[in-house]
Design a protein around this nucleic acid. Sequence first.
DNA 1: GACAAATATTCTACTAGAAGGTAGATATGC
DNA 2: GCATATCTACCTTCTAGTAGAATATTTGTC
Lengths: 198, 198
Amino acid sequence: MPIMTNPTSTADKILQCARSLIIAGGYNGFSYADIAEVVGIRKASIHHHFPSKVDLVRTLLEQYREEAKAGIAALERYNPDPADQLRAYTDYWATCIADPTSAFCVCALLASQIPVLPPEIVVEVRAHFRTLSAWLTAVLEEGATQERFVLSGTARSEAEGFVAGVHGAMLSARAYGDDKVFKVVTDSLIERLMADRS
Amino acid sequence: MPIMTNPTSTADKILQCARSLIIAGGYNGFSYADIAEVVGIRKASIHHHFPSKVDLVRTLLEQYREEAKAGIAALERYNPDPADQLRAYTDYWATCIADPTSAFCVCALLASQIPVLPPEIVVEVRAHFRTLSAWLTAVLEEGATQERFVLSGTARSEAEGFVAGVHGAMLSARAYGDDKVFKVVTDSLIERLMADRS
DNA sequence: GACAAATATTCTACTAGAAGGTAGATATGC
DNA sequence: GCATATCTACCTTCTAGTAGAATATTTGTC
């Protein structure tokens, strides 16, 4: 096992390409042939790195979840205020939505297809949702303790509402083909939590 | 053209079956072979009723949109109060979610795959979102006029937030494999609109 | 550094099955 | 007789996946 792989190794290119293809059309919306064409290798070479499609997507999701956790950690480090954390989170997605290759949460997109997904994929998707809602629950609790937020229900139920609102806003942005609706919805999601609203 | 077709004609069975297959896994998540097996006919017979997959799904969406409009009209007839209308709407979906063959809005599911969808399908999906948000905007305006609702932003932006919340809640219910999260999220969606909250 | 063994990566060529779709024969009902 | 509906049989293309040869690349040994 090499100490470090090439920063943009073939395996990484394959994963990156597969990710953007899933974001466009989900698990059954892309094939090894699609990846081969974009990356510039043959189908068989992809199978060398990822024997099966499930291996590829599972690896991709493990990597995505790690990135998400690292992103959340960084975001917490730079934003001590809970409200700023929520804003940083929705702002991050607002910029993602402008780029077609990253305009949707991979796990949110796959979640919609859970009934036809291999079980190994479902567990990763489910785990991401739990991570997200656990983090948001903690942020809302912290904000409530600091009296920056006013929660109508439990932190947990408000967090689930926030997750649902963000994912639904991604969906609406895609449906209308209009990025602005995402910002409108998520801004109001944060605004209604604020204690200083008049 | 016959005056009336059999109440459960083959074409209807095909449409019904295709609908539940789309709800499970989207446009690329089912095939003519899948339908043939469930309905009990051969693939070629499906092509007689719907020459291409696009024809089938477009027809299915036209029918779905008609049902949705009729459902909304019925719901308005039986519920003069705007708050009751919203409750009837979310309650309808809460019961749908309990049944795997109808546990997701067909248009919401297809919206997630818009980048890989044929354009004829995209226009129907988009139209449904517009119908939904126009109706909800009207309901919220009426509720605000009657001073039953307190809106934080415009009726339109609140309506988009409501649509996003409902679709996101469907997604979370599927991700967790837990119907209850849908009710929790949508109840709070309605609750925060109410003027009489303490 | 030179050389060879081992390992990693990519390739061509192929498979079996599924995809959407077509042609044309055969029923079925008015 | 005629339209609707279903069938068998087939086509083409795509699908994930495999076998095995041809290259690179690394790794040890001298």
